[in-house]
Design a protein around this nucleic acid. Sequence first.
DNA 1: ATAACTGTTCATATCGTATGAACAGACGTA
DNA 2: TACGTCTGTTCATACGATATGAACAGTTAT
Lengths: 261, 261
Amino acid sequence: MDTSSIPEASTFDRQTAKTTVTTFRIVEALKRQSRARVSELADELDLAKGTVHKHLSTLRKVNYVVQEGKQYRLSLRFMGLGATVRSNLDIYQVAYRSVEKLAEATGEVASIMIPENGYGVYVLRVSAEGRPDIDIREGESVPLTATAGGKAILANMSAEEREQVISRHGLPELTENTITDPEELRDELRRVRNRRRAIDRGEYHPGQRCVAASITDLEGNPLGAVIVSGPSDRMNEKLADADFASLVGSTADSVQSRLYR
Amino acid sequence: MDTSSIPEASTFDRQTAKTTVTTFRIVEALKRQSRARVSELADELDLAKGTVHKHLSTLRKVNYVVQEGKQYRLSLRFMGLGATVRSNLDIYQVAYRSVEKLAEATGEVASIMIPENGYGVYVLRVSAEGRPDIDIREGESVPLTATAGGKAILANMSAEEREQVISRHGLPELTENTITDPEELRDELRRVRNRRRAIDRGEYHPGQRCVAASITDLEGNPLGAVIVSGPSDRMNEKLADADFASLVGSTADSVQSRLYR
DNA sequence: ATAACTGTTCATATCGTATGAACAGACGTA
DNA sequence: TACGTCTGTTCATACGATATGAACAGTTAT
């Protein structure tokens, strides 16, 4: 599951360009459906066919949508935007090599997550054998409350920010292991702070287990997290070795120190 | 250099959502500048400050722009769009492993390019030692006329399509080696067709040299190209070995055959 | 302290969006 | 084949919303 979708344009205040809202509602619908026709989108978004057609043909003219017969799909130009956004992140540049090494050393998938608007975004994922395409993809947004990386980030936020995230986004129950009680989450975050590492047990994907350590700025505010993920059973074995978990922490520390030089 | 930018909204016909055009002009300006303030964008795009502010705050509300103090930047959500678009491409799924192997076998950067709207887009780039971040990035659009991959694609287009690309986009001179004469390009494309491979010599980046082979559908229409790129001097040495160049071709053939099974 | 910036909000006029109808063409069915 | 129902696209219209420039307060430099 990805983040929730954009409400219809009329729910926004007067200081909002509602045409733009509608455009992005269409873009996100196309993201979900990968390819769609005019009337499908009109039905789904409750818009007139003419309206959808106008938006799609506009997006086609600016090259962000491609028409294939009667179907429309998002164009590869979005890849260019995504790649540019990512490469502008200091943390991505600095962390790239370390994450690669971490994947190699652990034999599992290693990632970087960055918080944005109360969500966590995986900006980098490397597996020991090539790029991973299953389960979680680079660029995916996930709730901070239901992943090891997210918990590592939340744990280092100020109480104020943390509570804001919790009240804004709640604690969506994604698997039977997801923490859904705010008080329980606060306890868990205290443990994360003390141990300087977060662990999840299938709270986002059942059967997946992750270890994470946070990267902070000089005041201790969270900038992101380093994560190692794998199948629960294999991860359980590996976690028995204390060196394994400390690898995640030392990677995070190394990235953090290089961020400030 | 990336693809050219969107003209101002008023130049579009009546069947176009001009608000959307303006929004994407702002998005592309933010792509170029990575972070910008309201009045910078207003100056650059020749819009009223109030207009830019309205668009930016709209984009922020739908989570596609992040505000950091007085600066605005594109959000990581564009990464999610880009990753989704890419993973919907059959050719990406099929080619991934082969390109990885090709990078390893050649010791150079191996890529897949896909044509879209008369441009070539690098949808995948793998280097023997980790992900390459220099020069050309995944997601970047380049002119078909000035790259080996682009020439491999152009060579397999119908004469009609090919001429349409040439007349629409021209032959932009990117380095002193770029082919700028249409007739010379047509000759070159004939050679490409005969040899079943395209070579460039710094026509896009000086000092870079690439070999490419096309991937086509069952009717022979170009779907993309497989490319190996590296520094000119090193590539010259390697190209002396006939097996080296044929590796590119056999990779393309293998991808193509697996596309139709 | 001044001055020149800034980002944001506001009211206004005009432009342009969203709508639903109308149309022709594609598609499937009988 | 002929029908009916779907489609995408275009069009005119009414209303709504965009773009504007001015006004304002806040910030940064001078």
